[in-house]
């Protein structure tokens, strides 16, 4: 059969695949997951960029029938699309935790997630523990972190400190983490990161009706939030998934109807129809996971939880 090439970029690897012309998004996505040995597939998606806008490959539609860049090979990024409510309870496999760790670390370093200088230093110390193992002053000589990107540029510029001084600060924390295995260090990183206000939120600029108030809409694991344009930290308004009856769009307009019929219906405009489609897609996916968490675990999840527990105990013994 005729094929086309795709390049899939994960947080730490690049892979090339030959795909059959008739393949749906799901065929490619499943192949990537199998190649990675990833079973917690529901958090992830294949992202591409078209005309400067980020979009996710639809699983149920043929790959070549989607509005993807016509290049050879076609490039996709394999990324977390949805985030858990609690990393320590929901991320079971080590590979899942590792991919989340790498993605969240990048978001913090790229300043997509704001993090205070104190917390960035603590996070950096866990990243160093994950990479280098236990601190050994005989081996980890001054300058050993010189090649690592550990702190956001904003933090580095904020203080008059030399690279050496930052290294000392991070190393002081790093030395405290002795005995923590790589997977534990990464999980500790995520446990701190998940409490940051901007963690796991997808922001979209929106306008409200005639007065053209510029706002931001945020979609995350818990619900939909509305922010002032200059404050991404604390929403002015929040709709938890369990308090929403219906979400609908027509062209650029999007409507959120609360469950409480007396409560005000929230209407706004996004920049493009395409953005509304993406917002609804994210709402459906997040709501689906929200419901799944509140149901009894499937047999597959129960097995994975048992396996993860065994694996952890075995590792602890080894360590």
């Amino acid at each position: 059969p005729k094929t086309f090439k795709v390049k899939v970029i994960t947080m730490d690897a690049e892979m090339e695949f030959s795909c059959e012309m008739k393949w749906k998004g799901k065929d490619l996505f499943d192949l990537v997951c199998r190649t990675l040995g990833l079973r917690e597939t529901w958090f992830f998606g294949l992202q591409y960029t078209i005309k400067g806008v980020r979009a996710w490959l639809k699983l149920e539609k043929k790959v070549l029938e989607q509005e993807i860049p016509k290049e050879d090979p076609i490039k996709f990024c394999f990324l977390a699309k949805f985030y858990p409510e609690k990393v320590e309870e929901e991320l079971l496999q080590e590979i899942t935790q590792h991919l989340f760790f790498l993605q969240v670390k990048k978001q913090i370093l790229d300043e997509e997630i704001y993090c205070s200088p104190e917390v960035t230093v603590l996070l950096a110390s866990y990243a160093v523990q994950a990479k280098y193992g236990d601190y050994d002053p005989n081996f980890h000589k001054p300058g050993f972190l010189a090649q690592d990107e550990l702190l956001p540029q904003r933090v580095l510029k904020q203080y008059q400190m030399t690279v050496h001084m930052w290294e000392e600060k991070i190393t002081a924390w790093y030395a405290e983490h002795r005995g923590i295995a790589r997977d534990e260090a990464e999980m500790n990183y995520l446990k701190i990161a998940q409490d940051l206000a901007m963690y796991g939120v997808n922001y979209f600029p929106i306008e409200q009706n005639k007065n053209h108030t510029d706002l931001l809409l945020g979609v995350d694991a818990k619900g939909i939030h509305v922010y002032s344009i200059n404050n991404r930290f604390s929403p002015n308004k929040s709709f938890e998934w369990s308090a929403i009856r219906n979400i609908s769009y027509s062209e650029k307009e999007l409507t959120i109807k609360p469950l409480d019929k007396k409560a005000e219906v929230f209407k706004f405009f996004s920049s493009q129809l395409k953005v509304n489609k993406l917002i609804l897609q994210l709402c459906i996916g997040n709501h689906d996971l929200f419901m799944k968490r509140r149901r009894v675990d499937s047999i597959e999840i129960q097995q994975m939880k048992a396996q993860a527990k065994e694996e952890k105990a075995r590792k602890k013994m080894e360590h």
Binding site: R245, N246, I247, S248, K277, M291
Partner: peptide, 22 residues
């Protein structure tokens, strides 16, 4: 519970989604 009426319209009922999964 997800309905696309035309290419420019879409609707998702969270209530129906919840009922169908119970």
């Amino acid at each position: 519970y997800f309905a696309r009426k035309a290419n420019h319209k879409g609707s998702y009922s969270l209530v129906d989604a919840l009922k169908s999964k119970v």
